[in-house]
Amino acid sequence: MTPDEFRELYERLRRQAPGEAARPAVDDRCGALRHLTPERVAAAAAEVRLGRSVSLAAPIDTVRGPDDPEPAVHRMTGPSPGDVASGALCFATDRFAMNVHGDADSHLDALCHVVFDGELYGGVPAGTVTAEGARSLSVSLVENGIVGRGVLLDIPRLRGVRWLEPGDQVTPDDLTAAEAAQGVRVGPGDLLFVRVGHRLRRTELGPWNAAEARAGLHPAAVEFLAEREVAALGGDGNNDTAPSAVADVAFPVHVLAIHALGIHLMDYLQFEDLVPVCARAGRWSFLCAVAPLRLTGATGSPVNPIAVL
């Protein structure tokens, strides 16, 4: 995609952003979550038939690797050997820290995460993000969680491969073909999850520098999200390919989805536990609950989405 084609697509999608003219205040801007109405949340409960819950998050990694140069840090702070030896009441305690937007751990991107043309989503000035945190569009917009109908489209399954190789791209035709092959259709307010097999490849072949080479969506696929009025998008990679499909725009899918459409993204999930459950059940939709941490002013959060079938 040429830079001019990307710019035209960006402007077209931005004009389609939900409720753009109806937002009375910056902090009321919830973006594409406006598609996720109370009626659609209630209807999503009907997806539960097996009573089976499955995590869509990968285990948090504390080991340095080529895709994780700043791994999460987990440190035990108690009890001390003396506490244990004393026989008195004591507690096991620990501390945890992580780089939220890395290339290994499952996380959710807030609407303040992408700065493009000097602005955040909806024309909010980029200066609202300061050293003290984001004053607008932070992860606190979803402090009550994102709950709705989840749909998993498995692109390696469609193509008859175990995973897509780094650099490969998921097209709009791939998404519609996966729908047909799996007997499911993505609709308004859905939480769409697109599997490229990144996590399986990493598990079997070992980690690599995903910042330089990874499979993901082609920018044109974001039109599919807009047409179907998707509320949130999650992938088992970064959602963007590397190298980028657009010269001079490193993360075109992030720009189009977050900045133009106001879609919350979830990166580096894992679907290897969910795929066999969906395959055995013969259906690829489910109730999904996404619960980020309740943080103030944060640009994202570690996340553990739960699919309930």
Rank of each mutant, 00 (worst) to 15 (best):
S301V: 06
G206V: 09
E39S: 13
R40M: 11
A247Y: 06
L265T: 07
T130D: 08
R294D: 14
M76I: 12
D94E: 14
A46D: 14
R202K: 14
V246H: 01
F286E: 07
R52Q: 14
L137K: 04
A85D: 10
L287K: 12
D103R: 12
G148A: 03
E223N: 11
G160W: 04
P3Y: 02
F116K: 06
A215V: 02
R12M: 08
Q270M: 13
D27Q: 11
A250D: 13
F224R: 04
V253C: 07
L152G: 10
E132D: 14
G123Q: 03
A44V: 05
P219M: 05
D117E: 15
R159N: 04
V114R: 01
G19Y: 07
G87K: 03
L287I: 00
R202E: 15
G197N: 05
S80R: 08
A213Q: 15
A32F: 01
A181S: 13
V277F: 01
V255P: 01
H107Y: 08
V249F: 06
T130L: 02
V290G: 03
P172S: 04
D61F: 00
P172I: 04
S138Q: 00
R201A: 12
V115M: 03
V63G: 10
T37K: 05
R294Q: 14
V142D: 02
R29Y: 03
P79W: 01
A180H: 10
S244N: 03
A25H: 11
A257L: 01
H198C: 09
C112T: 07
E119Y: 04
R23V: 15
L191I: 14
P172T: 02
L261Q: 03
V246S: 00
A226T: 00
G133M: 05
E165K: 13
C278M: 14
E165W: 10
A85G: 09
D103S: 13
S138K: 01
C112E: 01
A281N: 06
L36P: 06
V290D: 04
S285C: 13
R149Q: 05
P207Q: 04
T241Q: 08
T130A: 02
R40I: 00
L265R: 08
L120Q: 00
P71Y: 08
E119M: 12
A45T: 07
A21H: 12
P81H: 02
P71K: 07
G145Y: 10
D103V: 06
S140L: 12
A215Y: 01
N304Q: 14
P38I: 10
E39P: 00
P302T: 11
L295G: 07
V303Q: 07
G234V: 03
A177R: 15
S244P: 06
Y268L: 13
E5K: 13
D117C: 05
P276M: 00
A245W: 09
D248C: 04
L137W: 05
N209V: 12
